[in-house]
Write a protein that binds this DNA or RNA. Structure first.
Lengths: 144, 144
DNA sequence: TTTATAGCGGATAATAATGTCTTTTATAAA
DNA sequence: TTTATAAAAGACATTATTATCCGCTATAAA
Protein backbone atom coordinates (compact mmCIF):
# COMPACT_ATOMS: atom_id res chain seq x y z
CA UNK A 1 0.00 0.00 0.00
CA UNK A 2 2.38 2.69 1.21
CA UNK A 3 6.18 2.79 0.94
CA UNK A 4 8.28 2.10 4.03
CA UNK A 5 9.11 5.82 4.15
CA UNK A 6 5.43 6.62 4.32
CA UNK A 7 4.66 3.93 6.89
CA UNK A 8 7.45 5.17 9.17
CA UNK A 9 6.37 8.76 8.55
CA UNK A 10 2.76 8.08 9.49
CA UNK A 11 3.65 6.11 12.59
CA UNK A 12 6.14 8.79 13.65
CA UNK A 13 3.81 11.70 13.14
CA UNK A 14 1.02 10.05 15.08
CA UNK A 15 3.43 9.41 17.92
CA UNK A 16 4.81 12.96 17.82
CA UNK A 17 1.27 14.29 17.81
CA UNK A 18 0.35 12.25 20.87
CA UNK A 19 3.41 13.52 22.72
CA UNK A 20 3.05 17.12 21.57
CA UNK A 21 -0.53 17.11 22.84
CA UNK A 22 1.04 16.59 26.25
CA UNK A 23 3.60 19.36 25.64
CA UNK A 24 6.54 17.02 25.43
CA UNK A 25 8.92 17.07 22.51
CA UNK A 26 10.55 13.82 21.46
CA UNK A 27 14.00 12.98 20.05
CA UNK A 28 14.67 10.89 16.97
CA UNK A 29 15.97 8.07 19.17
CA UNK A 30 12.79 8.10 21.23
CA UNK A 31 10.56 8.17 18.14
CA UNK A 32 12.27 5.35 16.26
CA UNK A 33 12.19 3.30 19.44
CA UNK A 34 8.52 4.05 20.07
CA UNK A 35 7.34 3.24 16.56
CA UNK A 36 9.87 0.49 15.91
CA UNK A 37 11.54 1.97 12.83
CA UNK A 38 15.20 2.16 11.72
CA UNK A 39 16.64 5.31 13.25
CA UNK A 40 18.78 6.72 10.43
CA UNK A 41 16.12 6.03 7.84
CA UNK A 42 13.45 7.60 10.00
CA UNK A 43 15.67 10.68 10.33
CA UNK A 44 15.44 11.19 6.57
CA UNK A 45 11.69 10.89 6.64
CA UNK A 46 11.37 13.39 9.50
CA UNK A 47 13.63 15.80 7.61
CA UNK A 48 11.16 15.77 4.73
CA UNK A 49 8.27 16.43 7.07
CA UNK A 50 10.23 19.26 8.68
CA UNK A 51 11.05 20.91 5.33
CA UNK A 52 7.38 20.74 4.46
CA UNK A 53 6.38 22.44 7.69
CA UNK A 54 4.44 19.50 9.03
CA UNK A 55 6.59 19.12 12.12
CA UNK A 56 9.05 21.46 13.83
CA UNK A 57 12.56 20.34 14.69
CA UNK A 58 14.64 21.72 17.52
CA UNK A 59 18.39 21.21 17.38
CA UNK A 60 20.85 20.88 20.23
CA UNK A 61 20.61 19.43 23.71
CA UNK A 62 17.07 18.68 24.82
CA UNK A 63 16.04 19.09 21.21
CA UNK A 64 13.66 16.94 19.25
CA UNK A 65 10.47 17.16 17.24
CA UNK A 66 7.13 18.76 18.01
CA UNK A 67 3.91 19.60 16.25
CA UNK A 68 2.57 23.02 17.07
CA UNK A 69 -0.79 22.63 18.74
CA UNK A 70 -2.61 25.02 16.41
CA UNK A 71 -1.60 22.82 13.47
CA UNK A 72 -3.00 19.64 14.96
CA UNK A 73 -6.43 19.95 13.46
CA UNK A 74 -5.35 21.24 10.07
CA UNK A 75 -2.80 18.52 9.31
CA UNK A 76 -4.44 15.59 7.58
CA UNK A 77 -2.96 12.16 6.91
CA UNK A 78 -3.27 12.94 3.20
CA UNK A 79 -0.76 15.78 3.67
CA UNK A 80 1.83 13.36 5.01
CA UNK A 81 1.14 10.73 2.36
CA UNK A 82 1.33 13.34 -0.39
CA UNK A 83 4.75 14.51 0.77
CA UNK A 84 6.22 11.03 1.17
CA UNK A 85 4.52 8.97 -1.56
CA UNK A 86 2.71 11.46 -3.74
CA UNK A 87 -0.99 10.99 -4.29
CA UNK A 88 -0.77 8.26 -6.92
CA UNK A 89 -2.26 5.61 -4.60
CA UNK A 90 -5.66 7.19 -4.88
CA UNK A 91 -5.37 8.74 -8.32
CA UNK A 92 -3.71 6.13 -10.53
CA UNK A 93 -5.12 3.20 -12.48
CA UNK A 94 -5.24 -0.21 -10.81
CA UNK A 95 -3.89 -1.84 -13.95
CA UNK A 96 -1.06 0.71 -14.20
CA UNK A 97 -2.33 2.51 -17.29
CA UNK A 98 -1.24 6.09 -17.84
CA UNK A 99 -4.53 7.07 -19.35
CA UNK A 100 -7.59 5.77 -17.53
CA UNK A 101 -10.59 7.91 -16.69
CA UNK A 102 -14.29 8.35 -17.39
CA UNK A 103 -13.59 9.09 -21.04
CA UNK A 104 -11.17 6.25 -21.57
CA UNK A 105 -11.59 3.67 -18.82
CA UNK A 106 -9.81 0.37 -18.26
CA UNK A 107 -12.08 -2.61 -17.55
CA UNK A 108 -11.71 -2.12 -13.80
CA UNK A 109 -11.96 1.64 -13.73
CA UNK A 110 -15.44 2.18 -12.31
CA UNK A 111 -15.03 -0.38 -9.55
CA UNK A 112 -11.57 0.89 -8.73
CA UNK A 113 -12.67 4.47 -8.42
CA UNK A 114 -14.82 3.47 -5.48
CA UNK A 115 -11.93 1.86 -3.61
CA UNK A 116 -9.60 4.76 -4.39
CA UNK A 117 -12.14 7.32 -3.26
CA UNK A 118 -12.75 5.53 0.00
CA UNK A 119 -9.02 5.56 0.70
CA UNK A 120 -8.81 9.20 -0.32
CA UNK A 121 -11.73 10.05 1.93
CA UNK A 122 -10.10 8.23 4.83
CA UNK A 123 -6.81 10.08 4.47
CA UNK A 124 -8.36 13.49 3.81
CA UNK A 125 -10.82 13.41 6.67
CA UNK A 126 -8.44 12.18 9.36
CA UNK A 127 -6.57 14.93 11.18
CA UNK A 128 -3.88 14.52 13.79
CA UNK A 129 -6.08 15.96 16.53
CA UNK A 130 -8.68 13.31 15.72
CA UNK A 131 -6.06 10.60 16.15
CA UNK A 132 -4.87 12.15 19.39
CA UNK A 133 -8.21 12.90 21.03
CA UNK A 134 -10.48 10.13 19.83
CA UNK A 135 -8.13 7.34 20.75
CA UNK A 136 -6.81 6.17 24.03
CA UNK A 137 -3.15 5.25 23.75
CA UNK A 138 -3.81 2.16 25.84
CA UNK A 139 -5.90 0.57 23.12
CA UNK A 140 -4.12 1.62 19.95
CA UNK A 141 -0.47 0.84 19.33
CA UNK A 142 2.22 1.90 16.84
CA UNK A 143 5.06 -0.53 17.26
CA UNK A 144 4.40 -4.23 16.70
CA UNK B 1 -1.14 -0.44 -5.41
CA UNK B 2 0.01 -3.50 -7.33
CA UNK B 3 3.54 -4.37 -8.50
CA UNK B 4 4.43 -4.00 -12.17
CA UNK B 5 4.38 -7.79 -12.46
CA UNK B 6 0.83 -7.83 -11.21
CA UNK B 7 -0.29 -4.95 -13.41
CA UNK B 8 1.13 -6.63 -16.50
CA UNK B 9 -0.34 -9.94 -15.39
CA UNK B 10 -3.82 -8.52 -14.94
CA UNK B 11 -3.77 -6.64 -18.24
CA UNK B 12 -2.45 -9.74 -20.02
CA UNK B 13 -4.97 -12.13 -18.56
CA UNK B 14 -7.88 -9.87 -19.39
CA UNK B 15 -6.62 -9.63 -22.96
CA UNK B 16 -6.06 -13.38 -23.23
CA UNK B 17 -9.54 -13.97 -21.84
CA UNK B 18 -11.09 -11.69 -24.42
CA UNK B 19 -9.27 -13.47 -27.24
CA UNK B 20 -9.89 -16.96 -25.87
CA UNK B 21 -13.60 -16.17 -25.72
CA UNK B 22 -13.35 -15.86 -29.50
CA UNK B 23 -11.38 -19.10 -29.77
CA UNK B 24 -8.14 -17.43 -30.75
CA UNK B 25 -4.92 -18.07 -28.93
CA UNK B 26 -2.38 -15.26 -28.69
CA UNK B 27 1.43 -15.21 -28.71
CA UNK B 28 3.60 -13.40 -26.19
CA UNK B 29 4.53 -10.83 -28.85
CA UNK B 30 0.88 -10.13 -29.56
CA UNK B 31 0.00 -9.86 -25.87
CA UNK B 32 2.82 -7.52 -24.88
CA UNK B 33 1.98 -5.39 -27.87
CA UNK B 34 -1.73 -5.34 -27.06
CA UNK B 35 -1.33 -4.44 -23.39
CA UNK B 36 1.76 -2.29 -23.84
CA UNK B 37 4.12 -4.17 -21.55
CA UNK B 38 7.81 -5.15 -21.87
CA UNK B 39 7.90 -8.46 -23.72
CA UNK B 40 10.61 -10.40 -21.84
CA UNK B 41 9.32 -9.28 -18.48
CA UNK B 42 5.78 -10.20 -19.42
CA UNK B 43 7.03 -13.64 -20.43
CA UNK B 44 8.14 -14.25 -16.85
CA UNK B 45 4.77 -13.18 -15.52
CA UNK B 46 2.91 -15.45 -17.93
CA UNK B 47 5.17 -18.35 -16.94
CA UNK B 48 4.02 -17.93 -13.36
CA UNK B 49 0.39 -17.92 -14.41
CA UNK B 50 0.99 -21.02 -16.52
CA UNK B 51 2.66 -22.91 -13.66
CA UNK B 52 -0.30 -22.03 -11.48
CA UNK B 53 -2.77 -23.37 -14.02
CA UNK B 54 -4.44 -20.05 -14.66
CA UNK B 55 -3.57 -19.99 -18.35
CA UNK B 56 -2.46 -22.72 -20.74
CA UNK B 57 0.61 -22.29 -22.89
CA UNK B 58 1.16 -23.98 -26.23
CA UNK B 59 4.73 -24.25 -27.50
CA UNK B 60 5.92 -24.34 -31.08
CA UNK B 61 4.69 -22.77 -34.31
CA UNK B 62 1.23 -21.24 -34.07
CA UNK B 63 1.59 -21.57 -30.30
CA UNK B 64 0.62 -19.04 -27.69
CA UNK B 65 -1.56 -18.66 -24.62
CA UNK B 66 -5.19 -19.51 -24.01
CA UNK B 67 -7.63 -19.76 -21.15
CA UNK B 68 -9.85 -22.81 -21.26
CA UNK B 69 -13.44 -21.68 -21.59
CA UNK B 70 -14.70 -23.71 -18.65
CA UNK B 71 -12.25 -21.89 -16.38
CA UNK B 72 -13.42 -18.43 -17.39
CA UNK B 73 -16.04 -18.10 -14.70
CA UNK B 74 -14.07 -19.72 -11.91
CA UNK B 75 -10.91 -17.61 -12.28
CA UNK B 76 -11.15 -14.46 -10.19
CA UNK B 77 -8.87 -11.44 -10.25
CA UNK B 78 -7.92 -12.28 -6.68
CA UNK B 79 -6.41 -15.56 -7.92
CA UNK B 80 -4.07 -13.66 -10.23
CA UNK B 81 -3.17 -11.06 -7.61
CA UNK B 82 -2.50 -13.74 -5.03
CA UNK B 83 -0.08 -15.55 -7.34
CA UNK B 84 1.82 -12.43 -8.39
CA UNK B 85 1.71 -10.17 -5.32
CA UNK B 86 0.40 -12.34 -2.52
CA UNK B 87 -2.65 -11.15 -0.63
CA UNK B 88 -0.91 -8.63 1.60
CA UNK B 89 -2.61 -5.67 -0.09
CA UNK B 90 -5.88 -6.53 1.51
CA UNK B 91 -4.63 -8.23 4.65
CA UNK B 92 -1.76 -6.10 5.95
CA UNK B 93 -1.72 -3.02 8.15
CA UNK B 94 -1.75 0.41 6.52
CA UNK B 95 0.98 1.61 8.86
CA UNK B 96 3.11 -1.47 8.14
CA UNK B 97 2.76 -3.10 11.54
CA UNK B 98 3.23 -6.85 11.79
CA UNK B 99 0.59 -7.21 14.46
CA UNK B 100 -2.58 -5.24 13.86
CA UNK B 101 -6.06 -6.69 14.27
CA UNK B 102 -9.24 -6.38 16.33
CA UNK B 103 -7.41 -7.39 19.48
CA UNK B 104 -4.44 -5.14 18.97
CA UNK B 105 -5.31 -2.42 16.45
CA UNK B 106 -3.24 0.47 15.14
CA UNK B 107 -4.94 3.88 15.22
CA UNK B 108 -6.11 3.48 11.62
CA UNK B 109 -7.12 -0.16 11.80
CA UNK B 110 -10.91 0.09 11.80
CA UNK B 111 -11.06 2.61 9.00
CA UNK B 112 -8.48 0.70 6.99
CA UNK B 113 -10.33 -2.57 7.26
CA UNK B 114 -13.18 -1.03 5.29
CA UNK B 115 -10.93 0.02 2.42
CA UNK B 116 -9.13 -3.31 2.39
CA UNK B 117 -12.38 -5.24 2.41
CA UNK B 118 -13.79 -3.25 -0.45
CA UNK B 119 -10.68 -4.01 -2.50
CA UNK B 120 -10.85 -7.65 -1.49
CA UNK B 121 -14.51 -7.79 -2.45
CA UNK B 122 -13.74 -6.23 -5.83
CA UNK B 123 -11.02 -8.73 -6.64
CA UNK B 124 -12.87 -11.76 -5.32
CA UNK B 125 -16.14 -11.08 -7.07
CA UNK B 126 -14.75 -10.25 -10.49
CA UNK B 127 -14.28 -13.26 -12.76
CA UNK B 128 -12.76 -13.30 -16.19
CA UNK B 129 -16.05 -14.15 -17.84
CA UNK B 130 -17.56 -11.05 -16.26
CA UNK B 131 -14.81 -8.92 -17.74
CA UNK B 132 -15.25 -10.56 -21.13
CA UNK B 133 -19.03 -10.53 -21.37
CA UNK B 134 -20.07 -7.41 -19.53
CA UNK B 135 -17.72 -5.12 -21.35
CA UNK B 136 -17.51 -4.11 -24.94
CA UNK B 137 -13.92 -3.97 -26.07
CA UNK B 138 -14.66 -0.72 -27.90
CA UNK B 139 -15.23 1.15 -24.65
CA UNK B 140 -12.65 -0.37 -22.31
CA UNK B 141 -8.95 -0.39 -23.12
CA UNK B 142 -5.79 -2.08 -21.78
CA UNK B 143 -2.88 -0.27 -23.33
CA UNK B 144 -2.55 3.49 -22.74
C1' DT C 1 33.05 30.74 26.06
C1' DT C 2 33.24 25.90 26.11
C1' DT C 3 31.19 21.55 25.68
C1' DA C 4 28.03 18.10 24.89
C1' DT C 5 23.87 17.16 22.40
C1' DA C 6 20.75 16.39 18.58
C1' DG C 7 19.12 17.32 14.06
C1' DC C 8 20.92 18.18 8.96
C1' DG C 9 23.06 16.92 4.66
C1' DG C 10 25.73 14.25 1.69
C1' DA C 11 27.86 9.94 0.47
C1' DT C 12 27.68 5.20 0.39
C1' DA C 13 25.89 0.32 0.92
C1' DA C 14 22.57 -3.43 0.65
C1' DT C 15 18.48 -5.28 -1.11
C1' DA C 16 14.48 -5.77 -3.93
C1' DA C 17 12.03 -4.82 -8.10
C1' DT C 18 12.15 -4.32 -12.85
C1' DG C 19 13.90 -5.43 -17.25
C1' DT C 20 16.90 -7.92 -20.88
C1' DC C 21 19.44 -11.60 -23.21
C1' DT C 22 20.72 -16.24 -24.51
C1' DT C 23 20.19 -21.12 -24.61
C1' DT C 24 17.13 -25.00 -24.32
C1' DT C 25 12.86 -27.55 -25.09
C1' DA C 26 8.60 -28.71 -27.28
C1' DT C 27 5.85 -28.97 -31.43
C1' DA C 28 3.39 -28.01 -35.75
C1' DA C 29 4.03 -28.02 -40.60
C1' DA C 30 6.62 -29.05 -44.69
C1' DT D 1 12.69 -36.50 -40.48
C1' DT D 2 13.83 -31.80 -40.85
C1' DT D 3 12.96 -27.11 -40.02
C1' DA D 4 11.05 -23.11 -38.26
C1' DT D 5 8.56 -21.29 -34.43
C1' DA D 6 7.31 -20.00 -29.81
C1' DA D 7 7.42 -20.77 -24.93
C1' DA D 8 10.57 -22.16 -20.75
C1' DA D 9 14.46 -21.50 -18.01
C1' DG D 10 18.41 -19.44 -16.21
C1' DA D 11 21.82 -15.84 -16.12
C1' DC D 12 22.61 -11.19 -16.16
C1' DA D 13 21.82 -5.89 -16.09
C1' DT D 14 19.58 -1.88 -14.50
C1' DT D 15 17.00 0.92 -11.45
C1' DA D 16 14.49 2.10 -7.29
C1' DT D 17 13.93 1.43 -2.55
C1' DT D 18 15.53 0.83 1.86
C1' DA D 19 19.12 1.45 5.07
C1' DT D 20 23.52 3.05 7.23
C1' DC D 21 27.51 6.10 8.19
C1' DC D 22 30.01 10.32 8.96
C1' DG D 23 31.16 15.06 9.19
C1' DC D 24 28.68 19.57 9.79
C1' DT D 25 25.69 22.91 12.03
C1' DA D 26 22.88 24.80 15.54
C1' DT D 27 21.99 25.34 20.41
C1' DA D 28 21.15 24.68 25.36
C1' DA D 29 23.50 24.24 29.63
C1' DA D 30 27.49 24.50 32.47
Amino acid sequence: MFSKSCEYGLRSIIYIAQQSAQDSKVSLATISEAVNSPQAFTAKVLQQLTRNNIIKSIKGPYGGFVIESEKMDTIKLSDVVKILDGDSIYTSCGLGLNICDENSPCPLHYKFVEVRNQLKELLETTTLSMLVHDMSIDVFHLNL
